[in-house]
């Protein structure tokens, strides 16, 4: 009998506390019809208190379980080699005060840091000189340069981050979004390496 089971693990899934993790939750399955049902409901992991909030399910173990359950020899694992299961304790709710504090922190911090920057590079003198160079008028407050300059700072930052408030300028992700994605990837990599005991073999046991 020539039967093949194809399994494609998902990168990251979320489950509830004390839930049983079924194969269909963590993977896309392609198998002969009569087998599909039992594979779908194969429990690959039971979440317990000791798991805390991250469990790594190894593709290798999944293959073993499928073999034990169905007796199929040919099991193909396509894609990621392990799934990160995140145990969601309670629905994480964003707290408004925290948001407001962070907002104010960023607002005040960036306002003062731009002032520090201006003092640091003597922007006032540069603007005075620039204004004099261009127009021949000596003005200790060349606001004709400075107000457009201030608005320009905002425009430049929006341009860089690719956001016009809620609207995007084009479909590309902003550098910050890419950065956050990279950060998440690094964390996942770290978790896969460190949470999976199979990845490490120590002498001291």
């Amino acid at each position: 009998m020539n039967q093949t089971v194809y399994i494609r693990l998902r990168n990251r899934v979320q489950v509830r506390e004390n839930a049983a993790v079924f194969l269909k939750d963590i993977a896309l399955i392609n198998a002969p019809g009569e087998m599909l049902d039992s594979l779908d409901n194969l429990v690959v992991h039971q979440v317990t208190k000791e798991d805390r909030n991250i469990v790594i399910i190894d593709g290798f173990k999944v293959i073993k379980m499928i073999r034990a359950k169905t007796g199929v020899d040919d099991i193909q694992l396509i894609g990621p080699e392990e799934t990160i299961v995140e145990v969601v304790m309670k629905k994480k709710k964003m707290s408004v005060p925290v948001f407001l504090i962070v907002w104010l922190l960023l607002f005040t911090g960036s306002a003062i840091s731009i002032m520090n920057f201006h003092e640091d590079v003597s922007m006032q003198k540069v603007h005075e000189k620039l204004f004099f160079l261009m127009t021949g008028i000596k003005d200790p407050k060349p606001l004709l340069i400075q107000i457009p300059y201030s608005i320009g700072i905002g425009l430049g930052m929006i341009l860089f981050f690719n956001h016009l408030f809620k609207k995007r300028i084009n479909e590309e992700p902003s550098p910050l979004e890419v950065e956050m994605f990279n950060y998440q990837q690094s964390i996942d990599q770290y978790l896969i390496f460190n949470e999976k005991k199979e990845n490490m073999k120590r002498i001291d046991e």
Binding site: V102, I112, M115, S150
Partner: peptide, 21 residues
Amino acid sequence: RLIYLLMAIVLGKMCGSLFHW
């Protein structure tokens, strides 16, 4: 809430700059 926080930075920069001048 990425966008709102970005806007905090952007507005902060603009206000700080205007205040400075």
